[in-house]
C-alpha cells in the first residue's frame, strides 16, 4: 500500500516536470504538443476510492495549469476523466473490471488501446474546447484534438510498454 502511494507521488511530480519543462516546448508544426501526463490517469490504481482519485486528478490538472497560465482547463479536463473513468473501464474491459480483478498490463492489447484512446481523445477535446472557448473555432479544436491526441497516444503506449511492471 505504502509502495503504491510512493510510486504515484513520484510519478505525479516526474510527469508534471516532464510536461512543463520539455513536452510543452515541442510545438511540432507550430501547435502540436503531446500531453503525456494523462498517463497518470491511465495508470492510477483501479481499486482505490474514487473520491481520492477525483481530488488527485484535479490537483494534477491545476498544477499543470499554474505552470502554463491557462486558468483551469487542464484541471477541468482531468476532473471529468477521473469522474467517468469507471464507466470507460467497464466499457473497455467488460465484466472483469466489475470484479476488481483487472490489471492493465494483463489485458488484451485491443481493449487496452481502446481504453487509452477514449481517455486521451476525451481529455484533449475538453482541454482544447475550454482553451479556445469559442465555437467559431470548432475546426481548429478538432484539428488540435486529433493531432495532439495521436501524438499523446503514441507516447503513452510507448511509456506503457517501457515501464511494464516486473513479473513476479
Amino acid at each position: 500500500m505504502t509502495n503504491t502511494i510512493i510510486t504515484n507521488t513520484l510519478r505525479f511530480i516526474f510527469l508534471i516536470l516532464l510536461q512543463v519543462l520539455l513536452l510543452n516546448n515541442i510545438n511540432f508544426l507550430g501547435y502540436v504538443n503531446p500531453y503525456l501526463y494523462v498517463i497518470f490517469l491511465v495508470l492510477y490504481p483501479f481499486n482505490t476510492p474514487q473520491s481520492l482519485f477525483i481530488i488527485v486528478s484535479f490537483l494534477l490538472g491545476l498544477t499543470i495549469d499554474t505552470f502554463e497560465d491557462s486558468g483551469g482547463i487542464n484541471a477541468a479536463a482531468c476532473l471529468v476523466i477521473a469522474y467517468i473513468r469507471p464507466t470507460i473501464l467497464r466499457f473497455s474491459f467488460g465484466v472483469s473490471y466489475d470484479y476488481q480483478t483487472v490489471k492493465l498490463s494483463s489485458t488484451p492489447y485491443g481493449a487496452r488501446l481502446g481504453y487509452v484512446m477514449i481517455l486521451v481523445f476525451l481529455h484533449h477535446l475538453i482541454l482544447f474546447t475550454l482553451e479556445m472557448f469559442d465555437f467559431s473555432h470548432s475546426f481548429l479544436i478538432l484539428k488540435k484534438t486529433l493531432f495532439s491526441g495521436i501524438f499523446s497516444i503514441l507516447l503513452i503506449l510507448i511509456g506503457l510498454s517501457l515501464f511494464k511492471p516486473k513479473r513476479r
Partner: peptide, 14 residues
C-alpha cells in the same frame, strides 16, 4: 464542486 471551481478559473482566465 471542483468542476465549478475549474470552470470559474477558466472563465476568469479568458
Amino acid at each position: 464542486l471542483l468542476l465549478v471551481l475549474s470552470l470559474f478559473l477558466t472563465i476568469q482566465s479568458h
